[in-house]
Write a protein that binds this DNA or RNA. Structure first.
Lengths: 359, 359
DNA sequence: CACCCTATTGACAGCGCTGTCATTCACGGA
DNA sequence: TCCGTGAATGACAGCGCTGTCAATAGGGTG
């Protein structure tokens, strides 16, 4: 009943199990005749090697694990909301992994756990993954890197900020993307630009802010303290920051939120305050969440190619697992972002008067 | 170096490996003294049994697989968009699986493949999962059910429509939810209600439509053919259907889209046509995607507890795997939906004249 | 022709567990 | 006293592969 083993294949092909194994693993020094015989038997029987037997006997497990922050996941789980980043990451990893005959396993990691080191060892010990993908903010958990290195398990960090010399990484130039976005606003004619910072737990928050500030400086624009507010990447925090920033007599003509969710919060706040976007206020975000295309107005934002990045990460790990020598392999990959200008950003109204809401 | 095996534990505890195994698996007839000794050694060494060895030697693999439609996934992957349903499903499954020491593996299945049967056998053969969660539209792929049954692998179908007697299932009463939503509109005073059907590939599309029609009938409202349009669950299709439905001289005072994405499409179309929601048009969706809270107006919709459903599914599978006898286990579970009334639905304007856009 | 090499194939041990069967021991009844 | 019984533990054989090492067969060389 589907329980086809290597013995069945060997018997049918009239060869030893080792030869079957050789063909399956594409080893050298296998005659064409053998290869064909085995291949035929494999096809006829619909044989697929058992993952567990392979990983138990050999040095590779054909498994790639993705480590995801447990807190973040629990938070999403509680709120009943999906995680777009995670989902896109997975899609990418899945596509790559699948085409190479590997499997993907998602593991939750709690970087705050007192027993983190032990937890990690346990997971790695019981799974023996050939490679691990670290997603933010795990990418920067140095204990995790330590354990991984101690075990010699190859890993790729997605969007890490610290200790950039450790391990492999795939990242996007967040700083420059934020810079570009700010320039986009400046070019439209905005001089009074507000900024909403993201969750300090994520490295990206700092980078985006830096990019913003650098661009402002370069264009000779003042960064006003009361127009740089701290959010935490949630809609609610965006709403609050937006409301606060727009409440004053003086208010920015454009707001750059560190992510789309917060931008939607600002949009809501603006609309409550009777301000039209982009007529009265230009608004831009970051991430290109699905909603960015559905919102009214559609949101100008930066698209991060998360799926592609995960694909690259998976590919790096798989080639690392397959290569005998560890050199000559790509260790760092920078992914290209895209600034997507949609409806929510436009030139500011020229007359100051015009900025007073009609109500 | 983390490579702790059962032998190490046995040695440290001064017992046989079999005893360690017994304690680990909570078998009967184990003295308290033994249990404590072993437990101590396990803790001290930070031991975790190897997944592959366990699954190779024993009858269970501690693995739950989720089968996901490959086409759908590829589509999402291409568009660079995450999959909210999938993400929520995973979160739920992950939480449950994790608390029981199981692992979750996502596998893509192409139900249209000519070699589907073989593919399935291969995957099941190489993974040997203790249970499988089927997501729509795989839940209704009878070949998949066949193979699963032939191998005796327990499975849970999420939201299946056909062959309801097969396997276990966790579902939501889509029909009744759509019924309730329609009643919600009728109670607000709407008599001219349009409907946008979902992708025919999904069973839910039919059920939602039936619920709509039943409610209309019960309230003595006419279902107009030109106000029931066929979409495919995408924003674009919603936009098109919406535009078409709102273009005529006569147009509905409310539109019920079979999912949120299409509702957003309608919203866009309405807004292009100068219609305000909900003043000129009430609009409701289905799914409660994240955007539903961020949109303006916020969307009235039905929340499907996907994460909970997946949790339940995982729990069913795990208890099935652990139970010796297969009886007395829950095989069918109905999840509760929630109708979330937000800003996008309101009473229709009374005067017909008022429905002409001000432009 | 003896001899060394390389290409090809097979035999076999073992990876770290679980399942099966055997062993031991204490206890109770005939 | 002897035997049956059940509880507690251990010995050992695999699960289905891969890694290692041995064996065999050509092929070229001096």
């Amino acid at each position: 009943m589907g329980a086809v083993t290597i013995y069945d294949v060997a018997e049918r092909a009239g060869v030893s199990i080792k030869s079957v194994s050789r063909v399956l693993n594409g080893e050298q020094n296998v005659s064409v005749a053998l290869r064909t015989k085995v291949q035929e038997a494999v096809d006829a029987l619909g044989y697929r090697p058992s993952l567990s037997a392979r990983s138990l006997a050999g040095s590779s497990s054909y498994l790639i694990a993705a480590f995801v922050d447990a807190d973040l996941t629990i938070e999403h789980w509680r709120s009943g909301r999906g995680n777009d980043y995670l989902s896109r990451m997975e899609l990418g990893a899945l596509m790559e992994v699948r085409s190479s005959g590997y499997h993907l396993m998602i593991e939750l990691v709690d970087p705050g756990s007192a027993t983190l080191e032990r937890d990690m060892s346990s997971v790695l010990g019981s799974l023996k993954p050939d490679g691990v993908i670290l997603t933010p903010p795990i990418s920067d958990a140095s204990v995790v890197l330590d354990v991984l290195e101690a075990r010699g398990t190859p890993y790729v960090r997605l969007g890490p900020e610290t200790q950039l010399d450790r391990g492999r990484r795939v990242y996007m130039d967040e700083r420059r993307a934020a810079f570009d976005m700010t320039v986009h606003l400046a070019r439209l004619g905005h001089r009074e630009i507000g900024f909403i910072v993201g969750n300090p737990r994520y490295a990206a928050s700092r980078l985006r802010r830096e990019g913003f500030e650098a661009a402002m400086a370069q264009h000779g624009l003042a960064v006003r303290d009361d127009w740089v507010l701290e959010g935490d990447f949630t809609f609610t925090s965006g709403f609050e920051c937006g409301a606060r920033m727009l409440a004053g007599v003086e208010r920015p003509t454009a707001i750059f939120a560190s992510n789309d969710d917060m931008a939607f919060g600002v949009l809501q706040a603006a609309s409550r305050g009777g301000l039209a976007v982009p007529a009265d206020l230009s608004l831009v975000g970051f991430d290109d969440t699905p909603s960015a295309q559905f919102s009214m107005p559609q949101l100008t934002t930066v698209r991060q190619p998360v799926a592609e990045m995960a694909e690259t990460a998976a590919r790096m790990l798989i080639s690392a697992a397959q290569a005998k020598a560890d050199d000559g392999l790509e260790r760092v990959h920078q992914a290209a972002y895209t600034l997507i200008a949609r409806e929510s950003s436009a030139p500011p109204r020229l007359a100051r008067a015009a900025r007073i809401p009609v109500s």
